[in-house]
Computed example of a mutant assay.
Amino acid sequence: MKTSSTDPATEAKPEVGPAEVPGQAEVPDVSHRDFLSFSDVAIKVTQRRLPSVDPGAMEMVLLLHRVTNALVYDLESTVHRPAGWSWGAFRLLFTVWVSGSLESKKAAKLAGMSRAAVSSLTNTLEASGLMARTPDPTDRRGVLLKLTPAGKQSFEKAFLHHNAREREWASPFTPDELQTFIYLLEKLNTAGQQAWVSHRD
């Protein structure tokens, strides 16, 4: 019986190109992407690697999260930091401005913040002369938060600038598109109030 004279150890093997390296073809080129444009490639890659993922739900949450982050950064850096406060402080100022005066625990709930965060922000805003603590007439141990006259004036001036920036963000929509978008966000807001959603205490 004739055997092959070829040595298996020296037998030529096919070369493996870069595209054939396991996993190499799945790595996208993100060098030209930024924070917002990264979303579309992230969705496509996730669909390919995890086919059972719901791409519509993922795209909704990913885009909402990323656009919200970009919007908040823009508003904070162009309006609120120049006004002398942070985005968190704006949320508290806005909540108290709308409510007139508010117990700190309720302010934390309405602003979507922890009580510790509200306490810290109140200290800062009080030291700046923008907010005051006053006794709660219905609870001897309670304290109400309210804007000082200077705080109200400063907030309202900044909010006009804030709203001008909001108009810039809304400008890509036609009036009808904007109303449709608001309607859809309101539906999502309603869904967020259901029992299965985890809420801050």
Rank of each mutant, 00 (worst) to 15 (best):
Q153N: 14
E126L: 02
A19H: 08
S52E: 15
D176K: 13
S37Q: 05
M58E: 02
L147C: 03
P18Q: 15
T134C: 04
A83W: 04
L160M: 14
E59F: 02
A132H: 02
F181S: 15
P14S: 04
A132D: 07
R140V: 10
P8E: 06
T3A: 14
S119R: 11
R133F: 01
W87R: 10
V27F: 11
I43R: 05
A108I: 04
A70S: 14
A9R: 00
T78F: 14
N123T: 02
V16Q: 04
Q24C: 00
E168F: 08
L145M: 07
F90T: 14
L178P: 03
A158H: 09
A57F: 05
E20G: 05
A116H: 02
T95K: 06
F35K: 13
D54E: 13
K106Y: 04
R66L: 10
A70I: 01
M1Q: 12
V96T: 02
P172Y: 08
R48W: 06
P135G: 05
E103I: 05
P28D: 04
V72R: 05
P137R: 07
E11F: 03
N163C: 13
I43G: 00
D40M: 06
K109E: 13
L36T: 13
E168T: 12
L102V: 07
G17H: 06
A170M: 15
A116D: 06
N163H: 14
P28C: 03
